[in-house]
């Protein structure tokens, strides 16, 4: 029905969309930076793979366990580190991500070490991936347009004012962090069931950076921008195979240009419906 090349492209895009949407909520809406979300992807991927292969759990349940595991770890980590200011929080996430990768390399008996974890059944077809990505978008959209997401935006804009308006800054930051980790874990679990063979190097620091870069390119504070950003970042190199070694170079330059020229990214605080809406007309659904 669809050849394996296109299936691969669709699955990769969808998986990354889920991870980037998590990142978008964390960075774009709450203005917390994490260079460790690949670590949460790794946790989701390995947990889901182990559930599938070792415990023969059904696919959906395995992926769910992977996502929840990532969320629990984020909750524990966040309880310790969420109060750290700006760069200190960022470096603690980065350190965490690297710890996860090294730990998975080291625990050969469980994870297969550098060789990787093999024999994962192929379950993430392009249909599954697409359905998941759409579901992820709806969930993230609903979150952002609820009092929880509005609290995230308030924290992004001004922490002191947010607190003065009854927002428990620490609690909501942690919630945002856990949410992004659950999405990363979800993406990881799906990815494992597509690749059938995962290694720690898939979830290294450059992967975390790629998630952040995609979020920035798409536009901080826009979920549809994040989807667009992911499509650009994932699809362009597929269609310009020849230039694949310039891929990361181009992203680096693009990030600098975006920050210098259009700091709000491709979509910048706007969602797709906003583009077709004149100001002063009836507002869109949800209340943002």
């Amino acid at each position: 029905m669809i050849n394996s090349f296109y299936e691969g492209v669709i699955v990769t895009c969808c998986v990354n969309i889920i991870a980037v949407l998590g990142m978008s909520v964390l960075t774009g809406f709450t203005r917390l930076f994490s260079f460790g979300n690949a670590g949460f992807m790794a946790i989701g991927a390995y947990a889901a793979a182990i559930c599938s292969v070792h415990y023969h759990l059904p696919f959906a349940l395995s992926v769910l366990i992977g996502a929840v595991a990532a969320g629990i770890v984020a909750y524990l980590l966040g309880s310790l580190t969420i109060r750290l200011r700006g760069d200190y929080f960022l470096i603690s996430c980065l350190g965490f991500g690297e710890c996860v990768r090294v730990l998975f390399l080291y625990l050969r008996n469980i994870t297969g070490g550098a060789v990787g974890y093999t024999g994962i059944p192929f379950r993430t077809t392009w249909v599954v991936a697409l359905v998941c990505a759409i579901a992820a978008f709806i969930i993230a959209w609903n979150l952002i347009h609820s009092r929880f997401g509005q609290a995230f935006s308030a924290i992004r804009e001004n922490e002191v004012a947010a607190a003065a308006n009854g927002i428990d800054v620490v609690k909501y930051k942690k919630m945002s962090f856990v949410f992004s980790a659950i999405f990363a874990g979800w993406a990881g679990g799906l990815y494992a069931h597509y690749l059938q063979h995962i290694t720690p190097v898939l979830f290294n620091l450059p992967k975390s950076c790629e998630l952040v870069i995609t979020t920035v390119l798409g536009g901080l504070g826009s979920l549809s921008g994040s989807v667009l950003g992911t499509l650009v970042v994932q699809l362009l190199p597929e269609f310009f195979r020849k230039f694949s070694e310039y891929r990361m170079l181009a992203y680096g330059i693009a990030v600098v240009l975006v920050i210098l020229l259009r700091p709000s990214g491709l979509m910048g605080y706007k969602e797709f419906p906003d583009l077709f809406k004149k100001s002063g007309k009836k507002k869109s659904t949800g209340g943002a």
Partner: peptide
């Protein structure tokens, strides 16, 4: 909340007295 709309500034403050759960929101 500088980058948010005027109305959203007030909505965020109103939210404090609302109590729907995260599941209800999602």
């Amino acid at each position: 909340f500088g980058n948010l709309s005027v109305k959203m500034n007030v909505i965020i403050a109103c939210n404090m007295r609302s109590s729907y759960s995260i599941a209800e929101a999602l």
